[in-house]
Amino acid sequence: MNSVRLQHFLTRNTYLFSLLLLAILLSVNYSLQDNLFELRVLNNSMRTLLPLILLAVGQSVVVIGGGIDLSVGTMVSMLVAVLVKLINAESSAADIALAVLAACGVGIVAGSLNGLAVSYLRLQPIVTTYATSFIFSGVALLLLPRPGGQIPTELRRFYAQTPYGVPLSFYVIGVLLLLWTLIRSTRYAQYLFATGSHSQAAYTSGVPVRVVRFSTYVWAGFFAGLAATALTFSTGSGQANIGDNMTLDSIVAVVLGGTRLSGGKGGIAGAIIGVMILRVIRNVIFFADVPTWSQTLVNALIIIAALAGPGLFGLVRRMVKK
């Protein structure tokens, strides 16, 4: 009975291995960079991480549902362009709120486009979202041919806040985890995991598989809107390719966090941890004085080792059993 519960716990909380990995990497990082946990440094890193965290959360919903979204990066570029167009240095709080709503709304429309193609036209998610990513990238260039834009200085200060000595990003993460816990206890979550795990069996059981698949891409679009908002608030300006490189990072973070790429297993906590792991690896390489020209290679090797970790773990366990 106890072993059943334990097994259950480990399966539900797929991020435990990643959490361990993050702890190890953080201690290595701390030994090389002793001001790591100083509020100013911590706040700075978290502020630059938040956009990717938000994006990876959206991506993990898609991946859990059995899909993948290669368009989230350029979607962020497009939504940043929307925000920069709508906000200027004199914008009022209401204007800004409207702009953020607009960005999330456009994100939802863009996500629906992906969702329609994948779920109702039954196109391959990899090819489809790769194709739509160029649509978003094209729109971004039309909206913002030259880098630019300005936001009120109060807004940047607001985004840099540390209420009660804790960076704002941690509050956002807290809200995300709370919402996820709530969603996890609804029927929608059961449908989401069932669809990702075995869509045929889910269909036979009466799960509205198409609607569920569609919804995951809408979530991804919505979170791309939030990510674009965080990115604009932290940089204060935009350019038409600012988010393009975030797509692959969002997928790697999702997988690093223990979410299964073929769907049906995982959660957003893993994605958040995954983003942090990616950042800490970069920190370690920087502070360990790895020669500049080797940094990309070392970074890649560590990521591959981290990705292979759970697999190696299982392999060793099977060999020990024999």
């Binding site: 609804t186 075995h198 036979t204 059981s205 799960v207």
Partner: peptide
């Protein structure tokens, strides 16, 4: 079989038919 491999026995049996609290939250 129409079972979802990654879900528990209880979750499988009540899939699409889950007992809900206030129409929203699963009564595990």
């Amino acid at each position: 079989l129409s079972l979802i491999p990654d879900m528990t026995v209880a979750e499988n049996i009540w899939l699409t038919n889950e007992p809900l609290l206030g129409g929203i939250s699963l009564r595990r």
